[in-house]
Amino acid sequence: MLKLLDGIVELYKKVATSLPPDVEEALKSALSLESGGSTAASSLSVILENIKRARETARPICQDTGVPVFYVKVPFGLSQNELKQTILEATREATQKIPLRPNAVDIITEKNSGDNTGEGFPIIYFEETPSGSLIIDLMLKGGGCENAGQTYKLPLEELGAQRNLEGVRKCVLDAIQKAQGRGCPPYVVGVGIGAAKDQVARLAKEQLMRKLTEVNKVDELAQLEKLILSEINELGIGTMGLGGRTTALGVKVGVNHRHPASYFVDVSLACWAMRRGRLIW
């Protein structure tokens, strides 16, 4: 799997050093909404200039090159174990070559492994696909925005949040209000709703892989995404939390069936440097 290894190293490089076009476009339109001379306008100009420089010089957009999260769709018959070994090897190589910041820290010894591999690091999710191609999606998820996420168990009296989409709306607004500027807004907001904590956390993060321009196939959720996005932007937190018209670039909601007794909502925030990419093999 030598060539695949090179492909994954290239994927790392692309994701760490360039933003997807839909995210860059959304940041450009955010800039056009701010008045000249405001801190939001000047911050967004620097952000756009940074994106350009990082791409042109093949340097990481952000020094926090994050936790690598892989979503791998595997055709029937391909070994997941071999794929995992290839991903780990590619991670070591990418850390050296690009370079990425080593972010994998041992819980007991506090030692940084130095190569971005360790127990459960990177995060890798496998799923079998009926298609003949191997599809590898990669997100580099920064620590600042990961820390700003929240999980809710409904009903929740302090928010007056019932077990319905209206309750979900309140949770998402609460998460943004609590996050303020600490996770580098404008945010991309992933929401997962379902039966169990681990499931909704994964579902919420997976939503961040959807293009900002993509409209939810479920009408009710498409409307909810639109409503929450416009309300988040009414909060006035703005770019880097210093005020402004754009606090989020997009809201994406995913649902699973729930247990009659449970209604979990997870809100996963991505910073403006929403780094994701795909390799088809």
């Binding site: 911050s43 620097v46 952000i47 200039e49 940074n50 420089r53 990082a54 010089t57 340097r59 990481p60 957009i61 952000c62 020094q63 926090d64 920064g142 600042g144 580098c184 880097m240 210093l242 910073c271 403006w272 440097a273």
Partner: peptide, 13 residues
């Protein structure tokens, strides 16, 4: 002082 989060290449320069 707040500087711009994520503007890592720009600031490194």
């Amino acid at each position: 002082l707040q500087t711009i989060g994520g503007a890592a290449a720009y600031l490194a320069d």
